[in-house]
Design a protein around this nucleic acid. Structure first.
Lengths: 147, 147
DNA sequence: ACTGTTATTGAGACTCAATATCAAAAAAGG
DNA sequence: CCTTTTTTGATATTGAGTCTCAATAACAGT
């Protein structure tokens, strides 16, 4: 019993439209990433595939991640001193992040109000917003109490 | 006639508190960065100083930028495939960014409403926000008209 | 199926931002 | 001036991400 990863169709038509091919490697990488709930980074994806015996080179992993990004299936959440961190946006409602500077905890949140306010601000500037990233840094409930 | 860079005092006391020293190099780099209105990246700072004959090694530039970041004098705005981009936050009111995906134009904006809404959202989560970064990607007025 | 065309793969070289090393130089404080 | 501790800087090193290019695989047409 094979579960079809969400976004497979989207990715396929994205590739076909650009005259690009749907290869074994791309499918494997798409599957792997789809199975990752939460945040991930390219290097870990590559290593995990390698450990599991799934055949795909580092170059292909990076290339496919770039394609998925262009296609809108994943979003770059942030970049640390050790590379980029992504998250899949498919089957995952849009949200923003709070990052605790003490313990590293990441809180996902969503606010309709916030979204529509941003739209208002964009139209004031004649700007057509397509996507955004909001990261609020500070201290989570637990870490505040420890003080 | 020497203009004292804004933030020099803050930086000095920050260093003193940590038992670190206020050296010629650090002062030069602070000055250089203060004179940069807008966004900058470490490598350009280093190259510009080198061209102007200001003495400071690449290592010192990077080290000092990290210190200024810890101190809160500068903020990392984003990271491209060619390194980090910062902006000085001193003497510069907080704001967020819109980035045009077509022409690369950066629009700075600020909204009280947006700020206070974010604070509300934070307190709902028991989170103490310290700083944030919001980047809205899309198309600016000019580029929309070109379509 | 077979074939020709064209995109893709992968091993490893390469790039480039950023950091580590460490001996020599410079502050700070007697 | 002298001692101690931090800083500097030239250079080596790291590491994420990309490029190269010959070999291979996907696709379209027959």
């Amino acid at each position: 019993m094979k579960s079809v990863p969400p976004g497979k169709k989207l990715f396929s038509s994205f590739l076909r439209e650009r005259g690009q091919r749907i290869t074994k490697e791309r499918t494997l990488i798409l599957q792997k990433i789809s199975s990752c709930s939460g945040h991930f980074d390219p290097e870990s994806i590559y290593m995990q595939m390698r450990e599991t015996g799934l055949k795909a080179s580092r170059a292909s992993v990076y290339r496919t991640i770039n394609l998925m990004h262009e296609c809108g299936l994943i979003e770059r959440v942030r970049t640390t001193d050790r590379g980029s961190i992504y998250e899949s946006t498919f089957g995952h409602k849009h949200h923003d992040h709070m990052l605790c500077l003490q313990c590293g905890k990441v809180i996902e949140f969503y606010s309709d109000e916030l979204e529509s306010l941003q739209e208002d601000i964009c139209s004031e500037q004649g700007f057509q917003g397509k996507s955004h990233t909001l990261e609020i840094r500070g201290f989570c409930r637990k870490c505040r109490k420890k003080e």
